[in-house]
Amino acid sequence: MEKKNRILVKTNNMRSHSTKIISNGLFILLSLSIILFSYFKCIEKELLLPILGSFVTFYIGVLKQISDEDNLFKNLFEAFNNRYDNKLNDLFNELKINTTKILTEDEIKLIIDYFNLSSEEYLWYAKGRIPKDVWIAWKSGILENLQIPQVKEIYENETKTKRRELSYYGLVKELKKQI
């Protein structure tokens, strides 16, 4: 869990930082251009303040959008991590050691819930709400878990028809590239 949180912080910082640099640079460039146009009488002085006000409003809107996107990612990230709880993690760790364990009905349902969680993560990645580096880390974990014989068997059963495959929002197609 700690590693996932470090990925969250690193990704949010990198994305926010680069977007803020671009928006700050653009804001400064446009503001200076307007002031220079006004100075060289290409823009009437009466229009200077309304134009600058429009740029300030637009700039604040861009910063608000960045903040909203970061908050959405943070909320999705936390929700997904909360759903991937210790019970599921403990089951996967046990199955890695005991590859002949017969699963209970509840354990099978838990693994199917994991597939649903993974497909929701992929859906949000495909919509551009989950950064690529986070998705790569999650996909790596999914592929590793699919190496567990019991998990692989359930996965193959869950995705054996096209209709069932489609219920996972494109995740199966994405994973087939790696399997």
Score class of each variant (00 low, 15 high):
residue 1 M to V: 04
residue 4 K to V: 05
residue 7 I to T: 13
residue 8 L to V: 01
residue 9 V to T: 09
residue 10 K to R: 14
residue 12 N to R: 15
residue 12 N to K: 11
residue 13 N to C: 12
residue 13 N to Q: 13
residue 14 M to C: 01
residue 16 S to A: 01
residue 17 H to P: 00
residue 19 T to N: 01
residue 19 T to W: 08
residue 22 I to P: 05
residue 24 N to H: 14
residue 24 N to I: 11
residue 25 G to F: 11
residue 25 G to Y: 11
residue 26 L to R: 01
residue 28 I to S: 03
residue 29 L to N: 01
residue 30 L to N: 02
residue 32 L to C: 04
residue 32 L to E: 07
residue 35 I to K: 11
residue 36 L to G: 03
residue 38 S to T: 14
residue 38 S to K: 00
residue 39 Y to H: 06
residue 41 K to E: 14
residue 41 K to N: 12
residue 41 K to G: 03
residue 41 K to D: 13
residue 42 C to K: 15
residue 42 C to R: 14
residue 43 I to S: 03
residue 46 E to N: 15
residue 47 L to G: 14
residue 48 L to Y: 09
residue 48 L to W: 00
residue 48 L to H: 04
residue 52 L to K: 01
residue 53 G to K: 08
residue 54 S to V: 13
residue 55 F to K: 08
residue 55 F to W: 15
residue 56 V to N: 01
residue 57 T to Q: 13
residue 57 T to Y: 14
residue 58 F to L: 10
residue 60 I to S: 05
residue 61 G to V: 10
residue 64 K to R: 11
residue 65 Q to L: 12
residue 65 Q to F: 15
residue 66 I to S: 09
residue 66 I to M: 07
residue 67 S to Y: 15
residue 69 E to D: 00
residue 70 D to M: 15
residue 70 D to E: 15
residue 71 N to P: 02
residue 72 L to F: 12
residue 73 F to D: 00
residue 74 K to W: 07
residue 74 K to T: 05
residue 74 K to G: 00
residue 74 K to F: 14
residue 75 N to P: 00
residue 75 N to K: 03
residue 75 N to M: 04
residue 77 F to L: 07
residue 77 F to T: 01
residue 78 E to C: 03
residue 79 A to H: 03
residue 80 F to W: 11
residue 81 N to D: 14
residue 81 N to E: 10
residue 83 R to E: 10
residue 85 D to R: 12
residue 86 N to T: 00
residue 86 N to C: 01
residue 88 L to D: 04
residue 91 L to S: 05
residue 97 I to P: 07
residue 98 N to M: 08
residue 99 T to C: 00
residue 100 T to S: 14
residue 101 K to L: 03
residue 107 E to M: 07
residue 108 I to S: 07
residue 110 L to W: 03
residue 111 I to A: 09
residue 111 I to D: 12
residue 113 D to F: 09
residue 115 F to S: 10
residue 117 L to N: 02
residue 118 S to N: 10
residue 118 S to P: 07
residue 120 E to V: 01
residue 121 E to G: 04
residue 125 Y to K: 12
residue 129 R to Y: 15
residue 129 R to L: 15
residue 130 I to L: 14
residue 130 I to Y: 10
residue 133 D to A: 08
residue 135 W to E: 09
residue 136 I to H: 05
residue 136 I to C: 00
residue 137 A to M: 12
residue 137 A to E: 08
residue 138 W to T: 02
residue 140 S to C: 02
residue 143 L to Q: 04
residue 145 N to R: 11
residue 147 Q to R: 04
residue 150 Q to V: 10
residue 151 V to L: 02
residue 152 K to H: 11
residue 153 E to H: 14
residue 153 E to A: 14
residue 155 Y to V: 04
residue 158 E to V: 06
residue 158 E to G: 03
residue 160 K to T: 03
residue 164 R to C: 04
residue 168 Y to K: 06
residue 168 Y to C: 00
residue 169 Y to Q: 08
residue 171 L to D: 09
residue 173 K to I: 05
residue 174 E to Y: 11
residue 178 Q to A: 11
residue 179 I to T: 07
